[in-house]
Write a protein that binds this DNA or RNA. Sequence first.
DNA 1: GAGTTTGAAACT
DNA 2: CAGTTTCAAACTC
Length: 446
Amino acid sequence: MREHEFQRHYYACASVHPLVNISHIRVSTFSMEEGSDFPGLEYSCGEDLRRISMVPLAYTYTNFSIHIPNNYSNISHLTPLHHQDSSEAEQTCSSVWDHEFNTHGFSCPLCCDPSGSHLSHCPPVCCSDGLLPLTDLYQFQSPMTASHAWTPGGAFQYHTSSAEPCDSVGSITSAEDEQIFSTHESSRHCNQMDLGQSVQPTCCPIPPDIETVGQNKDSTRSFSENSKKPCHCTKSQCLKLYCDCFANGEICSECSCINCCNNMEHATERHRAIMICLDRNPDAFHSKINSSIEGVMKRSHTRGCNCKSSGCLKNYCECYKAQIMCSSMCKCVSCNNYSRSEVEKQSTVEMSTHTHHNTTQCTANLSCLTDTVVKATCGCLLAQAEEVEKEGLSRVQAERVTLEEFGYCLTQILVKCCDFLETKELFGAAVVSHSGILLNRESWCS
DNA sequence: GAGTTTGAAACT
DNA sequence: CAGTTTCAAACTC
């Protein structure tokens, strides 16, 4: 049973030097389910990579790739992978995946010398669970590290009985604009190396799951220490997503939690809890904050918030806390966390596109046309039509009167929209979501 | 620091 | 899937 559980979960561990802008790194996952096409679901790790280091991939994803754009000047801060054979890797494999960041580098016991002697040669990306060591696939192009070969030595396959070994081989390829660390280009690489020993199940008694990164046990200020906040859980044993440490894939350290099981002393319980969370939501450990590179960095909350009382202007709101605007994904009420300029920009575009009311200063947009407004308008037109029918007007006259009524309705809608926005301006009562949808005034047209 | 508010997560 | 409960962080005093 346990093995069955393990083979469904794969993790990618991507450790990148703190100076690298992690938000520019994307991780793509590829479903290996029959009939699926590459590429599969793509998502952004964002802070996942920086803070967690090990990103759990949903159990249906057995392949993934990590894209690191090359056009970042500080990319040279990525340190190359050092070469390491599997036997050495096995020796360093431990149930504790303890990455340590410091000003000199970082280490991973799966692929680095735990003594730290290889700190300057540790991998920017190392992989476990479903990934196998590679050899000489990529020459890192940087002044610091030129000619170093990217060889994710020490990467392991972990009980992947359901997958062919080669299907799980990680690969690192070079593209013009980005470095791609991938797992799905496995077949051609399989021939390049001797998998005889590497494919053996690892010596890990416990899968590394989403172990913490940067659990600095000494006094050195580590990268993750700077970002990790101690939790104060009392009832969840730090094994539910209520716990920020657990949710961030970190092990509790220097927390003031009670009955904490989010540590390696309770690895079994912790792993079980992770499985439960992943079963409930395969994206449970993915960052809730999406980021994409589209010339300008845009960030958004993947699920959106559901705030009701905070106006999305307090840290209760996950969007606000992440310093991003609420989006159409949000179901918040009375949202104030939106960009006025964005709303007005969108409104202006829609007005110029759909109407000829450019002379008006009203920036209300067509999103004023809520269901309620449409129903009310239809009701007016229907009532007008009934009146016309009673009066026995000709068809032409009836059409003209009905159209006049329709024009009147449109005028009223625009006036109400303008009035509404002005009221919002005066009282600062934001009732417009950033997507331009008017809220909280459903009855204004009735 | 205690108590309250808040909204996500978990549960039913 | 909607409503309710639990939980811990955020906030207030």
